[in-house]
Simulated scan of single mutants.
Amino acid sequence: MMTKKIGAAAFVLLAAFAVNAGAATNVLIPHDTKGMEITKDKNMCLMCHADSYKRVGQPAKKGTATAMPADHWMKGKNGAMEPAPIRYNCSVCHSPANNY
């Protein structure tokens, strides 16, 4: 049973890296993320960055968060666009700039 859990976790991690394989550098987050919960069931990043698929590709208005890019979305069961499950762990590819 433990092997299946580790195997699934490793698959998700490798898939996340494979999806981002073309990225040259780690994308820095310009704000503190301390205390922001990022789990499979709750991702506080999505509240601001995935509020609407309509914002994808549009410049962020002053005072608003940058929208998640189109490759972070997928078509859901009801046909509406929703954040892709494989992208739930933002910290795999992104980290706060204040950590450097």
Rank of each mutant, 00 (worst) to 15 (best):
V19I: 13
H31W: 14
A9N: 01
R55C: 04
K75C: 00
H72V: 02
L28I: 03
C90H: 07
K34P: 02
N43Q: 07
D51V: 03
Y100N: 04
L28G: 08
P30M: 09
G57Q: 09
P69K: 06
G63A: 01
A18Q: 02
S95K: 14
K54S: 14
D51W: 03
T39I: 08
V92P: 00
V12I: 09
I29C: 10
A21R: 12
I29M: 09
I38N: 12
H94T: 03
N89Y: 11
D32Y: 11
E37Q: 07
N20C: 10
G57L: 02
A50T: 02
I29W: 02
G76N: 14
P59V: 12
K5W: 04
F11P: 01
K77M: 06
I6N: 01
G57E: 01
K42Q: 12
M68G: 11
V56K: 04
A10P: 07
T33I: 00
G76K: 06
T64R: 15
M81Y: 09
C90K: 02
A97M: 05
A21C: 10
M36C: 05
L28W: 08
Q58A: 15
R55G: 01
A84R: 06
P85A: 10
P96I: 08
S52P: 10
A15T: 07
A8L: 08
Y53K: 09
N43H: 10
L13E: 12
G35P: 05
T39D: 07
M44N: 02
F11D: 07
T3C: 11
G57I: 04
A67H: 00
G35I: 12
A84N: 03
D71P: 05
G76H: 05
Y88G: 13
F17C: 08
T3N: 12
M1A: 15
V92G: 05
M36V: 10
K62T: 02
I29D: 00
L28R: 09
A16T: 01
N89R: 04
Y100S: 03
T33C: 03
H31C: 14
A21Q: 09
Y53T: 06
I86P: 05
K34L: 07
S91Y: 14
K62E: 04
I38F: 11
C93M: 05
P69L: 01
V92I: 15
C90I: 00
Y53S: 13
T33Q: 09
A84Q: 05
N78S: 14
M68A: 15
G63D: 03
N78A: 14
N99S: 01
E37M: 08
H31L: 13
A60M: 09
K34I: 06
S95R: 15
G76Y: 07
D51C: 06
P83E: 15
A67E: 03
A50R: 02
D32G: 07
D32N: 15
A8Q: 08
T64D: 09
G22Q: 01
A18G: 00
A10Q: 11
F11R: 13
